[in-house]
Amino acid sequence: MNANREVLCMEPELTETPIGVATPVTPTTDTMPRRASVGRDVRNTVGTITVPNPRMEARDVNVFYGEKHALKGVSIDIGAKEVVAFIGPSGCGKSTFLRCLNRMNDTVSGCRVAGQISLDGSDIYDRKVDVVPLRAQVGMVFQKPNPFPKSIYENVAFGPRIHGLVNHRNELDELVEASLRRAGLWEEVKDRLDQPGTGLSGGQQQRLCIARTIAVSPDVILMDEPCSALDPIATAKIEELIDELSQNFSIVIVTHSMQQAARVSQRTAYFHLGHLIEVGSTRDIFTSPQHELTEDYITGRFG
């Protein structure tokens, strides 16, 4: 019926305009929030390294293994009652830095640490500092569960005993039970406390090691890939435990599982070839990181 209807003001562009024809409108840049994007060649740390309530403060930490410069000017705070995750590829320095935090590198021959690291304001590398109590204050849980070849009870009781934290057997019993409960292991082992810790499953052994660490009331707990040898169920139990422990302790966790870092931590630090590249809230790091190297790593773009 409309075959001969005249064409109105419809112009050819209605049918032929290619997508994206230039328009006279120019954009303005004010008030549009933009993401700071930092290029791959930049090695300064991006993001906020400080927290309002730090327990530990590391400043310009450099580590050398002989000639090798393994850690280059790392500065970061560990806040009270927070979980900080260190991520990065193998050899990036994250475990090296973790071991600086309770002077585990002292035992590595040829290793030299420069810079300042303090716990509650006092320098942990001061000559007067005794590393034995330091390592109780800053406890460590390793990749492979390493219970002592002793009974479950003795594994937990050992630390409080040598540090002189208890006076009576009753007190020790209570501390062992409390530590095992906090580590979520009590119900599973309460009837066999005299049996060897090495007889437990891998996940149970790891929780025993955590119980052993928290028995000496540390300020900070360092965890070096604590779940890499565990199945998903044991991993979930440890992650749940980390969440509970963070109500009382500061926790620093090194992990190769980015999803684990995303799940358990409030702050994330990304290391790359000895540099601390970016620090930020875990939420920001995993939704909108600023440094291209961080972006490449967490999205699986490995060079």
Binding site: V25, T26, P27, T29
Partner: peptide, 9 residues
């Protein structure tokens, strides 16, 4: 909300 004299972004 647009300044037509703005520099092109």
């Amino acid at each position: 909300t647009v300044r037509h004299d703005a520099e092109e972004d």
